[in-house]
């Protein structure tokens, strides 16, 4: 299997007032295509920062990130945006759905920003995902009118609309009761198992982490295991 993500000697530093804060210190990670892995650490360990860097939302202070072998530090903002659009599917702890858009519109939103012509109809695909995730009848509801578990399923559907190679889930079960959380976890595992998607779950919960095949432990900005 080929390397899908390579994090190479990445540092992330920022100023907190007058103090230099090192969120990530010399991180080296290799993720292969089709892996199901977890980045685990307590809050403040730097795992979210790492996830933002892998998800191309943030840039490292030093070091490089390679996506499918390409060094993205040379990429323009537009190219990175396109990568986020096509390559990554995000699932956030707070769902991050847009409340003024309907469920269907939320799921289809990434396809609006697609830079290339899609070889499928995004609406058909969205409707298929709605059906698959048990959201039928909610197409024209708004996010704040459905339960947390349903919202997270909408977020996963939105993450899948562009057929990304990578699913990045940041504490996907953090805001859910254990039943909904387990369902979401099952779904993510299924995506990895059935659709051969690379899935990275960021969590502080060892129980969640155990569900994955590879655990990357982070503490104080360093990979400890």
């Amino acid at each position: 299997m080929s390397d899908i993500i390579k994090v190479d000697k990445v540092w992330k530093e920022y100023m907190m007032g007058d103090v230099l804060f090192q969120a990530l210190k010399d991180i080296n990670i290799l993720v292969k295509e089709g892996e199901l892995s977890a980045i685990v650490g307590p809050s403040g360990s730097g795992k979210s920062t790492l996830m933002h860097i892998i998800g191309l939302l943030d840039k490292p202070t030093r070091g490089k990130v390679f996506i499918q072998g390409k060094d993205i530090s040379t990429f323009t903002d537009n190219k990175i945006s396109t990568l986020r659009n096509e390559f990554v599917g995000f699932v956030f702890q707070q769902f991050n759905l847009i409340n003024k858009l309907t469920i269907l519109e939320n799921i289809m939103l990434p396809s609006i920003y697609a830079r290339r012509k899609l070889n499928y109809d995004p609406k058909e695909k969205a409707l298929y995902l709605i059906k698959r995730f048990g959201l039928v009848g909610k197409e024209n509801s708004y996010p704040n009118k459905i339960s947390g578990g349903q919202q997270q399923r909408v977020a996963i559907a939105r993450a899948l609309i562009m057929n990304p190679k990578l699913i990045l889930a940041d504490e996907p079960t953090g805001n859910l009761d254990s039943k909904s959380g387990n369902e979401i976890l099952k779904l993510l595992k299924e995506l990895n198992h059935k659709e051969k998607m690379t899935v990275i779950i960021v969590t502080h919960d060892q129980l969640v982490a155990k569900e994955t095949k590879r655990i990357i432990q982070i503490r104080d900005g360093e990979v400890v295991a």
């Binding site: 939302l57 537009n78 945006s81 986020r84 995000f90 991050n96 939103l109 920003y113 939105r158």
Partner: peptide, 16 residues
């Protein structure tokens, strides 16, 4: 601002 952030995460470019 948050909405802008979400859109950017989903692949919206600066021009979008």
């Amino acid at each position: 601002i948050r909405e802008i952030g979400i859109r950017r995460a989903l692949g919206a470019t600066e021009q979008d």
